[in-house]
Write a protein that binds this DNA or RNA. Structure first.
Length: 463
RNA sequence: GGUCCCAUCGUCUAACGGUUAGGACAGAUGGUUUUCAAUCAUCUAAUCGGGGUUCGAUUCCCCGUGGGACCGCCA
């Protein structure tokens, strides 16, 4: 059985995370079934479609690891075919010209609103026997929908759904300006691309009933449909561009790894027993539409962070460092080549207290930056006694040729004894002097991650 | 308002007629620790309500309630 699916976004804004999940599900299924995954840019809304969004969509998908087969399909480039099908539908009596002016339609809508009844186009021009064609109105072309009976769809996620044909209006398939609409283009393109499975957001479910009628009129093979539930914002409604952290870029900026977001999105609306962590390979092998639930799910940032933490701790450290380097360059300050080695060698402990790349960056800042600022609140902790201890530490430290943990331990233990204090009494002032904060990595890790000169410089500065 | 869809811990979900309703995240408590974190252990927490069907309903059916989607010459 062949499996050809597609993701068909419109380039009218940045791709949000719901779209990414739809793409992911399509792609996973294509991979699993050794089928094809196509990307179709639905740019028939000339006003709002922008080239930059097309690029952003492809980049976003690429970032998370989704690559479409062949070249992306640009819907507007197939306009000839779309028009040809409109003509054919017209010829065969499945469509008709409607000369209602926009004003006339507007009036009808208002009237309906006043009366509190739902607006449905009144099919005025469906049987235009007694009507005179107005000279000043350019017609739109409407599809002649079925008036009676029911249309039934078998949805791979939703099950069987049927609605009465009477509520489906005669929808426009060709605009006044001669351009075909989404309902028509999507069907024509899906047919041409030989799409076998249309997997899309639940918000398209009603469209399916319109589109099915076009397939039937053209005697085309009807694909399988699967409408996956939408992702809701924390407020509980459909995710919109206005919601915080709704685009891939928002997550990249926070320092989320692609694997973590992929894993998160996979588990949003889908489950495989109690399994939480899925490698890419496992996602492909285990994903199926049966496991997709029917109810919408809310976005939960703390879960993304916890998944991100997991991936930060488990991926290869060199790879993690590479990601950190890119992250720093794009969103923070570039890590200078002279500091790269020190950061890479320390990443093993720097990553341990991080949920995001940004956290790792912050943890690394004392290595990356030549001058550190001491947090005002912590500066107060450096009283005379503390200063005395670290200056004594400094004297002994200077005498070490090559610092290592054993030697440092010896110095610190002696200081603890001499000053009748505990580890904190020595460690805390040292940490403040070296990192600028009483919070930070283990004191041995800190000292060994800096050069000897740097340690001397920072401690000297205190007195 | 009309049409359609949905409903298990706060959140993501498991249990496809029989479980003390499970896991994960978040939360709480305690242990460990060199600060923060991490880690380990423990705990709190759910089947929307009402009727059926059945020996037995989270699961099937109906009604109610709540939430959502759609109702464009947008896609």
């Amino acid at each position: 059985m062949s499996f050809i699916c597609r993701f068909a976004p419109s380039p009218t804004g940045p791709l949000h995370i719901g779209g990414v999940r739809t793409a992911l599900f399509n792609w996973l299924l294509a991979k699993k079934n050794k089928g094809k995954f196509y990307l179709r840019i639905e740019d028939t809304d000339k006003e709002r479609s922008k080239e930059e969004f097309k690029k952003q969509i492809i980049d976003s998908l690429g970032w998370i690891g989704i690559k479409h087969d062949d070249k992306e399909f640009i819907q507007s480039e197939n306009i000839k075919k779309h028009k040809q099908i409109v003509d054919e539908l017209l010829k065969q009596g499945f469509a008709y010209k409607c000369y209602c002016s926009e004003e006339e339609i507007k009036k009808q809508k208002e009237k309906c609103k006043k009366q509190g009844i739902p607006y449905v186009y009144n099919r005025k021009w469906r049987e235009p026997k007694d009507l005179e064609v107005p000279k000043d109105v350019k017609p739109v072309i409407r599809f002649k929908s079925k008036i009676s009976g029911e249309t039934k769809i078998k949805d791979l996620v939703q099950g069987e759904v049927n609605i009465s044909n009477s509520i489906i209006e005669d929808f426009v398939i060709l605009r006044q300006d001669g351009s075909p609409t989404y309902q028509l283009c999507a069907v024509v393109d899906d047919n041409e691309m030989k799409i076998t499975h249309v997997i899309r957001g639940d918000d398209h479910k009603i469209n399916t009933f319109k589109q099915k009628q076009i397939y039937e009129a053209m005697k085309w093979k009807i694909p399988e449909f699967a409408h996956i539930p939408l992702i809701h914002s924390e407020k509980g409604s459909k995710l919109s561009k206005r919601d915080m952290a709704s685009t891939i870029g928002d997550y990249i900026k926070k320092g989320i790894l692609a694997d973590a977001l992929r894993n998160y999105l996979l588990r949003l609306g889908w489950a495989h027993k109690d399994k939480e962590i899925f490698t890419l390979e496992e996602s492909i092998n285990l994903f199926d539409l049966n496991g997709v639930g029917k109810s919408p799910s809310k976005l939960d940032l703390s879960r993304i962070l916890s998944l991100n933490e997991h991936y930060i701790k488990h991926i290869d450290e060199k790879q993690l460092f590479g990601l950190l380097k890119d992250f720093a360059q794009n969103f923070r300050d570039r890590i200078s080549p002279s500091k790269e080695k020190a950061v890479l060698q320390s990443i093993n402990f720097l990553k341990n207290k991080a949920k995001t790349l940004d956290d790792i960056y912050c943890n690394s800042e004392y290595i990356i930056k030549d001058n550190i600022d001491i947090v005002a609140e912590d500066k107060k902790l450096l009283d005379a006694a503390a200063k005395k201890i670290i200056s004594e530490f400094l004297e002994k430290f200077k005498k070490i040729d090559v610092p290592n943990k054993e030697k440092l331990e010896e110095i610190i233990n002696n200081l603890i004894k001499k000053h009748n204090t505990n580890f904190k009494g020595v460690g805390q002032p040292l940490r403040i002097a070296l990192v600028g904060s009483r919070f930070g990595p283990g004191i041995y890790n800190i000292i060994l991650s800096l050069t000897k000169d740097e340690v001397i410089k920072r401690i000297s500065k205190i007195n």
